[in-house]
């Protein structure tokens, strides 16, 4: 299981990476915005995407749309971890095909719960 973590704040990438390691996912790669994330995804081999929304260059929502528009990536599970909390934004992310939405600041338990839920749904 290889996970791509996308956030423009390196502190947040480190936190998410460490939490993922704690949950048993130690194979992670990082990108600091959608622009750098997309080539990594297109190269293949990523099983799960965790992305922030507000990033310079290419935002998380645009990354999500690009992922869903790519036949190779259309089924990639995507978890959005963001400070964006407007209801219309959450609805927009849902319509764009996000698999889970976590708002910052979040707890380790919330992240764990959402990731497990996504995997349950994929396996089930």
């Amino acid at each position: 299981m290889k996970i791509l973590v996308v956030d423009d704040f390196s502190t947040m990438r480190r936190i998410v990476k460490n939490l993922l390691r704690d949950l048993g996912f130690s194979n992670t790669v990082e990108a600091d915005d959608g622009k750098t994330a997309l080539p990594i995804l297109e190269k293949g081999g990523i099983d799960f995407l965790v992305t922030d929304w507000n990033m310079p260059g290419m935002t998380g929502i645009d990354l999500l749309k690009a992922v869903r528009a790519n036949p190779k990536l259309v089924d990639l599970p995507v978890l959005m971890v963001t400070a964006e909390a407007k209801k219309e934004q959450i609805v927009m992310a849902a319509q764009a095909g996000v698999n889970g939405y976590v708002i910052k600041p979040f707890t380790a338990a919330t992240l764990k719960e959402k990731i497990e839920k996504i995997f349950e749904r994929i396996e089930g």
Partner: peptide, 29 residues
Amino acid sequence: ELPGPVVPGVDDKEVGDVATSQDDVDDLL
């Protein structure tokens, strides 16, 4: 364009506009 983090007492003045907790997000979804 992107409002960012909800600051208590500033961004949650208009009721129903923003999700103020993960529970709000889960309910909406």
